[in-house]
């Protein structure tokens, strides 16, 4: 009977939370925003989400199969990447574009650097920026036939604010505005964010510091206008980015102090890009640039070991 006993190093018990559970929780948290996007922009938006997720999962499978690596699509990380990428797409994007983005995200940003946990940028955001640069026209076209937004009324609130036009705060909070599929409804995004915080998938540290820094920045440099500040926070991809992309485990610092620095850096970059950048949007670039600073931030903010200041008597 002795040869049936397992022997391994302690500890001999494991917590119930697994990588798969965590990814599944993120998917659940994305459902309100996805549902709102589909409700508002129509079933084509759902097709975009499904196609992007499928492209991500399929490219991960094909790559791992071809490279004779263990197949990891069951961990759900490719699904999350696909959903986040799709929710970053304009509602009437030609469907092959996000699919191409999905392949780019998984193969170039994730697998070429070693797969899950090794990517140096958030794959979904890197793919979005890749598409923004490659297909600027389609990526910045927020027309929606279902809502009757044309190229004039389809200006996003951020673009409208840049042009000095008035914006409707209530419409932004609910999500009755032009924008990408998943970023428009502040309420839906906050429900998802709150779910992740309650389930302890993310800590509120990065999102709150990020949003707070943007608020202070645009308040100070936007002419001390409170309404303008609130509008800035609710417009564009800030809420989406702060809760779902800046908190990406792989590309944000693990140290608590590092997360504070990271949040402030994100806020400053976003503020600069939004107020003075070439495009009214700034969140995606702010996040991927900050991703690049992550290893440095982490190194400089290592915690002090317990009792390190103590002395031998």
């Amino acid at each position: 009977m002795n040869n049936m006993l397992h022997v391994s190093s302690s500890p001999h018990v494991r917590d119930k939370v697994t990588t798969k559970n965590l990814m599944f929780d993120v998917v659940i948290a994305l459902i309100p925003a996805t549902a709102w996007g589909v409700y508002q922009f129509g079933f084509y938006a759902l097709a975009v989400v499904i196609a992007t997720v499928a492209a991500c999962v399929a490219s991960e499978y094909v790559w791992e199969k071809g490279m004779h690596k263990p197949i990891t699509i069951a961990d759900g990380s490719a699904v999350v990447t696909g959903m986040i990428l799709a929710l970053n797409m304009p509602p009437e994007i030609p469907i092959w574009m996000p699919m191409l983005g999905g392949v780019f995200a998984i193969i170039v940003v994730k697998q070429l650097f070693g797969g899950l946990g090794q990517n140096f940028m958030n794959p979904a955001l890197a793919a979005r920026c890749f598409l923004l640069i490659s297909f600027a026209g389609s990526m910045n076209n927020f027309t929606s036939a279902k809502l009757g937004f044309d190229s004039v009324s389809g200006a996003t609130p951020l673009a409208a604010m840049r042009a000095g036009s008035p914006v409707d705060l209530a419409a932004m909070v609910v999500g009755r505005i032009p924008g990408t599929i998943g970023e428009v409804s502040v309420i839906a995004l906050l429900i998802g964010g709150l779910y992740m915080i309650i389930r302890k998938v993310i800590s509120p540290r990065i999102p709150l510091i990020y949003i707070g820094t943007v608020a202070v920045f645009v308040f100070v440099f936007g002419g001390f206008d409170l309404t303008y500040t609130v509008n800035q926070i609710c417009a564009g991809g800030l809420i989406f980015g702060a809760f779902f992309m800046a908190t990406d485990y792989v590309t944000s610092p693990i140290t608590k102090k590092g997360q504070v620095v990271f949040g402030i850096l994100l806020g400053l970059l976003t503020g600069i890009f939004r107020l003075w950048g070439g495009s009214p949007e700034g969140v995606s670039y702010a996040i991927i640039l900050s991703n690049l600073c992550m290893p440095m931030i982490e190194k400089l903010t290592l915690p002090k070991a317990f009792g390190k200041e103590g002395k031998k008597a």
Binding site: H6, S8, H12, V13, R14, V17, T18, T19, L22, T72, D75, S77, G115, L116, G117, Q118, Y249, V250, I254, T255, K256, P303
Partner: peptide
Amino acid sequence: EVAANEPTPCIRCGRCV
């Protein structure tokens, strides 16, 4: 429980910290 849970890549969630 150790044998029942195969190790997978670190996702840097920071729970250990």
